[in-house]
C-alpha cells in the first residue's frame, strides 16, 4: 500500500518539498548575508523581505496542509477509485493510515525543518521585528509551524472523508484552521506560563519580552487609576514619577518552551481529528 499511496501522492509531496527547500535556501543565504552586514544595512536590505517572508510563512502551513490533506481521500472518493482500493486484500485502516502517513509526514516534517532553519536565520534579522514570542514572529519559526501544518492537513483529510469533495475539503481546512490559530495565539498562548510582572524600563524593550498586560502603579507599587491620579496631564504625571507603567510579560528565553507547548496543543488537536477520522471510517462511513 505504501507504494500505491506514494504513486498517488508523489506529485503533491514533491511540489511541497520543492517549495520548502527553495524557501530554506533563501533563508540560509539571508542568514549568512545579514550576519555580515551592520544593523542599518540589514534594515535597508531586508525590511521588505522580512514582511513578505512572515506573510508567506503564516500562510504556508495551511496552504500546504490543505493541499496535501484536502484531496487525499476526497479525490479518490470523487473518482470512485476507493472502491478499487477497498476491495483488495487490505483493510480500511491500513488504507487510511498509509495514505495519511505518505501524504502528511513529509510536509509536516519539512515544515518543521523549515521552522528550525528560520529560527537559525532569525537572530540576524531580529532588529527588524518585535518580540519573538508575539504574533507573527512566533508563528513563523521553531517547531510549532510543523504542528500547524499537521492541523491543517488532518482537517483537510478528515473533512475529505466526510464531504467527499476536494474543493469542499480544502475550504474546510482553511476555514477551520485560521480561527484556531488566532484563538490559540491570542487566548491561550499568554497562559502557557505565569507571566512575570515588573515596572517597565528600557532593558525590557531591548530584550524584546512579550508584554501581555499593562497597568499603572504609584511609586510604592500599588495599582492606581491613571485618570484619577493624573487628571488630564498624563505626561507630567509620568515625569514626576507619581505613576509608573507596570507590565505582565513573558521573557524572550521562554521561546522554546512556548514553542513546545504550542506544538503540543496543535498536535493534540491533529490527533483528535485523526481519531475522529478513524471513528468515522469504521462506524459511520458508507464508502460505496
Amino acid at each position: 500500500m505504501t507504494w500505491v499511496a506514494w504513486r498517488q501522492q508523489r506529485l503533491q509531496v514533491l511540489i511541497s518539498l520543492a517549495i520548502i527547500t527553495a524557501l530554506a535556501a533563501v533563508m540560509v543565504y539571508t542568514g549568512f548575508d545579514a550576519r555580515s552586514l551592520d544593523e542599518t544595512a540589514v534594515e535597508d536590505k531586508y525590511g521588505m523581505y522580512l514582511g513578505y517572508l512572515q506573510l508567506l510563512l503564516l500562510a504556508l502551513p495551511v496552504l500546504l496542509g490543505a493541499f496535501a490533506g484536502g484531496p487525499l481521500f476526497a479525490r479518490e472518493i470523487e473518482q470512485g477509485a476507493h472502491v478499487f482500493s477497498l476491495t483488495q486484500s487490505i483493510g480500511r485502516t491500513r488504507w487510511w493510515a498509509t495514505k495519511i502517513a505518505v501524504a502528511g509526514l513529509p510536509v509536516v516534517l519539512g515544515m518543521t525543518l523549515l521552522g528550525l532553519v528560520n529560527a537559525w536565520a532569525d537572530p540576524a534579522l531580529s532588529t527588524l521585528r518585535g518580540a519573538r514570542l508575539a504574533i507573527p514572529s512566533f508563528e513563523v519559526q521553531g517547531v510549532a509551524i510543523g504542528a500547524y501544518t499537521a492541523l491543517a492537513f488532518t482537517l483537510g483529510a478528515t473533512a475529505g472523508l466526510l464531504v467527499r469533495n476536494t474543493l469542499g475539503a480544502m475550504v474546510t481546512a482553511i476555514v477551520g484552521y485560521v480561527p484556531v490559530l488566532i484563538a490559540v495565539g491570542n487566548g491561550l498562548r499568554p497562559h502557557y506560563a505565569e507571566p512575570q510582572g515588573g515596572v517597565v524600563d528600557s532593558t525590557m524593550l531591548r530584550e524584546k519580552a512579550w508584554r501581555v498586560e499593562t497597568s499603572y502603579v504609584d511609586g510604592a507599587g500599588n495599582p492606581v487609576d491613571l485618570r484619577a491620579v493624573c487628571g488630564d496631564d498624563v505626561n507630567r504625571c509620568f515625569e514626576e514619577g507619581k505613576v509608573r507603567v507596570h507590565a505582565l510579560f513573558h521573557p524572550d528565553d521562554r521561546f522554546w518552551a512556548f514553542q513546545a507547548v504550542e506544538a503540543g496543543v496543535f498536535l493534540a488537536l491533529s490527533a483528535a481529528l485523526l481519531g475522529l477520522g478513524a471513528w468515522v471510517l469504521h462506524r459511520r462511513l458508507r464508502l460505496a
Binding site: 504513486r7 498517488q8 470512485g80 477509485a81 472502491v83 478499487f84 477497498l86 476491495t87 483488495q88 480500511r92
Partner: peptide, 22 residues
C-alpha cells in the same frame, strides 16, 4: 471482515474503478 474483501473474492464495480493517473 475489517481486513478488506475476502481474499478469495474479487469484485469488479460497474464503473470499473481504477487509479486514473496510473
Amino acid at each position: 471482515g475489517r481486513h478488506g474483501t475476502h481474499r478469495k473474492l474479487a469484485f469488479l464495480a460497474q464503473d470499473k474503478p481504477l487509479y486514473r493517473g496510473f
